[in-house]
Design a protein around this nucleic acid. Sequence first.
DNA 1: CCCAGATCGTAAGTATACTGTCAAATTAGA
DNA 2: TCTAATTTGACAGTATACTTACGATCTGGG
Lengths: 170, 170
Amino acid sequence: MPSKPPLPITMDAVYAAPGYLFRRMQQIAVSIFMEECRSFDLTPVQYAALIAIHTHPGIDATRLSAVIAFDRSTLGSVIERLQAKDYIERKPAPEDKRIKLLYLTKPGAAILRDIIPAVERAQARMLEPLKPADRKALMGLLVQLVDLNNEASRVPLRAEDALEHLGKSG
Amino acid sequence: MPSKPPLPITMDAVYAAPGYLFRRMQQIAVSIFMEECRSFDLTPVQYAALIAIHTHPGIDATRLSAVIAFDRSTLGSVIERLQAKDYIERKPAPEDKRIKLLYLTKPGAAILRDIIPAVERAQARMLEPLKPADRKALMGLLVQLVDLNNEASRVPLRAEDALEHLGKSG
DNA sequence: CCCAGATCGTAAGTATACTGTCAAATTAGA
DNA sequence: TCTAATTTGACAGTATACTTACGATCTGGG
């Protein structure tokens, strides 16, 4: 039995692969975020969690994970760290002993207010190398792709549904 | 002193932020990769490392990290796992006792050959929801952005330089 | 009312990612 | 040549990400 022919494998093929580019871009984005927000000692994930808790006070951890498309298990430790920094507090829900409701503390609201300019600088820096028209084009395509691929991820985003159980509307 | 006015913070602003979209897309990309390659028990990172070692036999860990833009500390454990699976082997360099040279084993070369179709299916699926013209546009913009932001990341890609010390040319 | 199934939080185990530090080895400079 | 700076690989520590599992709790069907 003859051995199979060698494959034309090149690094250039890797460098042009969508998966590689997404990983690399994520790496760069986190790096820029951490640089701009160094003095606040908040990670991108912790920042997103704070925003969501600010927007939905009294949300529980499971619904929070759906609102920011986080893995539920990971979120546990993120919440612990935010609580250790005194940025959020957890209160038991009176009608369900399993659930702990999440609220921003005063320091949490304060750091959120203070960090916003740094976050916006970071977001701007990520796209800075592109021409303005290209930035818009890229964001437009990414919004589409992320939305259309939502179900493909382990933790689909459930922005609206997640809140329907909180007594906000129906 | 009056208290500062509340900020108009919304989740929609988060959903449209570049950093959020990059994180989300990376999440989705890994998920699709793992799904297509489930039977091979290889992560995207391990796959990229195998490709690079195949392309540059005898590379050392430090240069490998530059070639695939990985953190060097992380790469240590990646190499350990690949070695444990018998996909690569490490040989001490005769002229430098610090260095261990990396080579693919026969099983390593075999799995690389066999996994390629699954990887290509995964890469295609990531972009599938977009129209073909949009796929090209997105990839073009991303290649640009990643390249122009290369130095902004903690582990800049050094595709060429990294090989100049391997005796390939000069 | 009672049990089956679902849900919530938590934890253990694996893998990536980055920060530091450290010792051994190599190289460069005085 | 002897030493200072650098390089390499290893390790410890933190944080994200996902899987599976488990106990506590709630809910619904009978």
